[in-house]
Design a protein around this nucleic acid. Structure first.
Length: 287
DNA sequence: AGTTGTGTTGAAGA
DNA sequence: ATCTTCAACACAAC
């Protein structure tokens, strides 16, 4: 499940591996993923374009291309991007992660001038590919609707305070995942952030005082930064551009740790449903 | 073997 | 308007 830290890991890797490269051709066996034009037209329009740089807003990936176009990709639940080179198939630790089962669901391939390929593996085919004018990207309705990116400079405490005040009745565990308020946090990190902030997911915003708000704000930055350092969470499908798993699942405190003991207090970690999704918490550590 | 859970997001329903 | 539910889809686990 790629959230902000996973997407940031991908962005960093792509800028290292394919920035400056040029798209030679494109192949797909699932054209439905390409949203604003036919696969044929997409293929025709992307050929010959140079990759100028890769950036993101929340979980949305943008590859800015020459000629004023941007390739916009959303990985949704099971998508991840692989960069393969014609020669070297093995990572520094000697493993060829590309052969892992989770990397076998490649439905879209961009062939690059260098001989590398950018491949989109997407088991459940929920992913989204859009080729649009660079200056129109910010006006796409789904991009325009996005809230402030959780790792951007504009996400100040004052801004967070204002966002909280807009949703006084909402459980805090729901607000954190709302991309149109704060972009980047999903199901994994909402649980981890709330554990770090010692706040129960079901707490209504209006009951959270200033001190707790400050703690929660700090936890968002702290947990996301830590998750980026660990190259994201690979509990199931997510892999980096080498096909290798991230490491955050090894240090997660509550996510998918229900029925296990809390590392802080020894209480059994609970799992409930909030917003149709699992939420994990320690009812003793979190108030 | 059929059912259920998985989780992101847009769209449809209330 | 705003909240809730569902569909997109494949697969593992029960």
């Amino acid at each position: 499940m790629p959230e902000l830290p996973e997407v940031q890991t991908i962005i960093t890797d792509l800028n290292e591996k394919i920035k400056g490269d040029t798209v030679v051709s494109f192949w797909t066996d699932w054209g439905k993923t390409i949203k604003n034009k036919s696969a044929e037209r997409f293929t025709k329009e992307i050929g010959g374009r140079k990759i100028l740089g890769v950036r993101r807003i929340g979980k949305n990936i943008f590859l800015d291309l020459s000629g004023g176009k941007t390739l916009y990709i959303h990985l949704k639940m099971t998508g991840h991007l692989l960069v393969k080179s014609s020669k070297l198939k093995v990572k520094s630790d000697g493993k060829n992660y590309f052969d892992d089962k989770v990397n076998q669901y490649v439905h879209h391939i961009w062939k690059l001038k260098s001989g590398r390929t950018l491949e989109f593996s997407d088991l459940r085919k929920f992913g989204k590919i859009v080729l649009e004018d660079t200056d129109k990207i910010n006006f796409l309705k789904e991009i325009k609707a996005l809230g402030v990116d959780a790792m951007s400079e504009e996400f100040t405490f004052a801004k967070f305070h204002e966002i909280l005040d807009r949703k006084k009745k909402s459980p805090v565990g729901l607000l954190l995942m709302d991309q149109n308020l704060i972009a980047g946090i999903g199901n994994i990190y909402r649980s981890e952030i709330l554990f770090d902030a010692e706040i129960l997911p079901t707490r209504r915003i209006e009951t959270i005082d200033l001190l707790e708000r400050k703690k929660l704000y700090a936890s968002i930055g702290k947990i996301l930064k830590k998750a980026i350092k660990y190259r994201g969470t690979s509990d199931s499908d997510y892999r980096d551009t080498s096909g290798a798993p991230g490491g955050y699942q090894k240090i997660a405190r509550v996510y998918r740790r229900d029925k296990q003991v809390c590392q802080k207090c020894g209480t059994i970690i609970k799992r409930e449903v909030l917003g149709q999704r699992s939420i994990f918490f320690c009812e003793k550590c979190q108030k």
